[in-house]
Computed example of a mutant assay.
Amino acid sequence: MKVALVTGASSGIGESTAVALQDAGYTVYAAARRVDRMSSLAARGIKVVKMDVTDDSSMVSGIAQIIDESGRIDVLVNNAGYGSYGAFEDVPLSEGRYQFEVNVFGLARLVQLTTPHMRAQGSGKIVNVSSIGGKIYEPLGGWYHSTKFAVEGLSDSLRLELKPFGIDVVVIEPGAIKTEWAGIAVDNLMKTSGSGAYASQAKALASFFSRATDGSEPSVIADVIVRAVKARRPRTRYAAGYLARPILFLRRVLPDRAFDAMFLSMIRRFA
């Protein structure tokens, strides 16, 4: 039986993906910092692993556990991540570094730890959950979008680098999804820039996030991930979820200034 590791599995896309992969016949390891929040996954027979993607020792021990118990790892779903918003001027560099630690360097370290086992097998799938935010941008989202742009570029390089070893690298670009992400992003935004020179922009963007609630269920992304993992020759990218494809289409066809104007107009409508 093939073995999959899903990070950020305590809620949202990660939790749904762990369930969907189990339903598809995989032995699933669900990883997150909060093991207590994965009790429902454990009750299904999914193996839960305490893992902090900013703590190297926990990642090393987590991969070692999987290899010791199952002897292989076929799928890595790098889903752990969060959105930190605020005016670039206001966000402490320590928070910018932490955003990269979670969204980029944790992902990168797990790729380093799993790749030798996949090479030895001659096969594997690495699925990096990016965002449409890896292709577009927003005011007050400089650090978050920087991390997702980095995930996109890293994934493209890895795809070529690992192809000779039978390892596929796939990028998932969710649109608006009904998860805890928006609430965390709004809290960070208002805490950081809710007063001062950027207050009006912060309030408008917070209202946009709070009122744009017609997101897709996390299972929509989970189903796409399973489809990519099972595909003999998966696509390099899958955009899915509420407004993902229309927004990415507009980004491709509109000049930068036109996209700027469209996006600012959309935020003002929600403000």
Rank of each mutant, 00 (worst) to 15 (best):
Q99E: 13
G106W: 00
G83P: 07
P139C: 14
N79L: 00
S84G: 15
I66N: 06
G83C: 08
H117W: 13
S146Y: 07
Q121S: 11
N79I: 00
G141K: 09
E89W: 09
K125T: 03
S131Q: 07
E95N: 14
G106A: 04
Y137W: 13
A80V: 03
F105M: 15
H117R: 06
D90A: 12
K135L: 12
Q121K: 12
S123A: 13
E138I: 12
Y98P: 10
F100H: 09
G133D: 07
E138W: 15
L113K: 02
K148P: 08
D90G: 09
N128K: 00
V111M: 02
G124S: 12
N128S: 08
T147D: 05
S130C: 09
L93H: 15
S146R: 08
R119S: 09
L140N: 05
F88L: 11
E95I: 12
E69V: 12
N128Q: 03
E138G: 14
P92C: 11
D68K: 15
V111G: 03
D74T: 08
L110Y: 04
G134F: 02
L110H: 03
R119E: 11
L107A: 02
L76Q: 00
L76Y: 00
T147F: 01
F88G: 05
P116F: 06
L93V: 15
M118S: 07
R119M: 12
Y82N: 06
G134I: 01
G133R: 02
S70C: 13
V129N: 00
S94G: 10
H145A: 08
R97I: 11
H145S: 04
Q121H: 10
G106E: 04
A108G: 06
A120Q: 13
E101R: 07
P116Q: 15
E89R: 14
Y85C: 13
V129T: 01
G83K: 02
L140P: 01
Y85V: 12
F105C: 08
I66H: 10
Y98I: 05
N103D: 09
V111D: 02
D68W: 07
G96P: 09
L110S: 03
V104F: 02
A80C: 14
D68T: 14
G134E: 07
G122E: 11
I66K: 04
T114Y: 08
I66A: 09
Y144T: 01
P116Y: 10
V75D: 00
Y98A: 14
R72S: 06
S123W: 08
R119K: 14
I67K: 06
E69Q: 12
Y82E: 06
D74V: 07
N128R: 01
R97G: 10
Q99P: 03
F149A: 02
T115H: 03
V111S: 01
F100M: 09
K135H: 14
V91Y: 05
G106P: 02
R72V: 05
H145Q: 15
Y137K: 12
K148F: 05
K125Y: 01
V77T: 11
F149V: 07
I126M: 03
H145F: 14
I66E: 04
